[in-house]
Amino acid sequence: MDTKQHVFLRKMNCKQPKKSSLLEAYDLQTWFPIKRGILARTVGYVRAVDIASLYINKGETLGLVGESGCGKTTLGRTLLGLEKARRGKILFCGKNLLELNRSELRKIRRRMQIIFQDPLTALNPRMNIIDIITEGLVEFRLIEGTREDHAKRLMNEVGLDEEAIYRYPHEFSGGQRQRINIARALSLRPDLIICDEPVSALDVSVQAQVINLLMDLRDRYNLSYLFISHDLSVVSNIAHRVAVMYLGWIVEHGPTGDIINNPMHPYTKALINAVPRPDPNKIEHKRERIILKGEIPSSSDPPSGCMFHTRCPEVMNICRERAPLETKSGMHGVWCHL
């Protein structure tokens, strides 16, 4: 894509900032260099996140769905500043995170937390639970009273036995470990929690418990979530709005109901169609199957024009040449020539 087009796109993508927006991101781009040879020269880039704009309001949950390798995790990490964006703007409560210095950033980090996919590797096996969940509090000197009190309060909050604070992570089951991760994320009273596939490592019966817990906490503390998942059914249950990502692009976003019932982008349609779901009443008996051909192209060598044109069932000539612009109707936006 040439620069001119890019600048144009950027102008088009800018949404009117909303007053209640907690986090806004415009045209984020995170590329990872590919290095070869003894001089480690950069021979190319993996375009993990190419163009992504989003906003999250206070108390709102934005679901981010996409298949593996589409850049959804990188986008989450970029928002937290764990990966450096090549360009773009991240506004958190009106401040651009990419322009802050270290000490300013540190203050803001307290208000943004993350929950990782694998609950065990996210916990230090040599620290006991009280150390794990009060580490942040100690770091930011927010302890009033004893650490035990804080730890016990947090344990109650996430539905764990408060007597267990001196145990170690390996003594807990998967669901309990994820609760510990949630307790740690909560400890600093953040405004935003980025949940990166928080339930995909858990069994179905435990998955529901953790989703319920996340919803309760959201309502209790007016938390905002960026809920990253490959599983549309999970996202549709918890998110107010959904953004669909494909090969580093957000191709469609809108309120959950609109996305599920009235998907506009051919990729979203295929993604929703591919979700296997029980349907004992046979309402959708005649659901037509959309089978996408081929696989996701490599993000180090993405296709020209629309990223999806290699697999799109409704591809036209223009899709191969030019990247589509956003078409909006209300809160529902889609990047497609159709």
Binding site: S205, V206, I211, S236, N237, I238, T256, R277, P278
Partner: peptide, 23 residues
């Protein structure tokens, strides 16, 4: 319980019916 605890692909957000405890 297993059938009820599966998140459905729909826009209505309600609490899921979780199975208490663990395997």
């Amino acid at each position: 319980a297993l059938l009820e605890s599966i998140p459905k692909l729909s826009a209505d957000k309600g609490r899921l019916k979780a199975i208490p405890g663990q395997v």
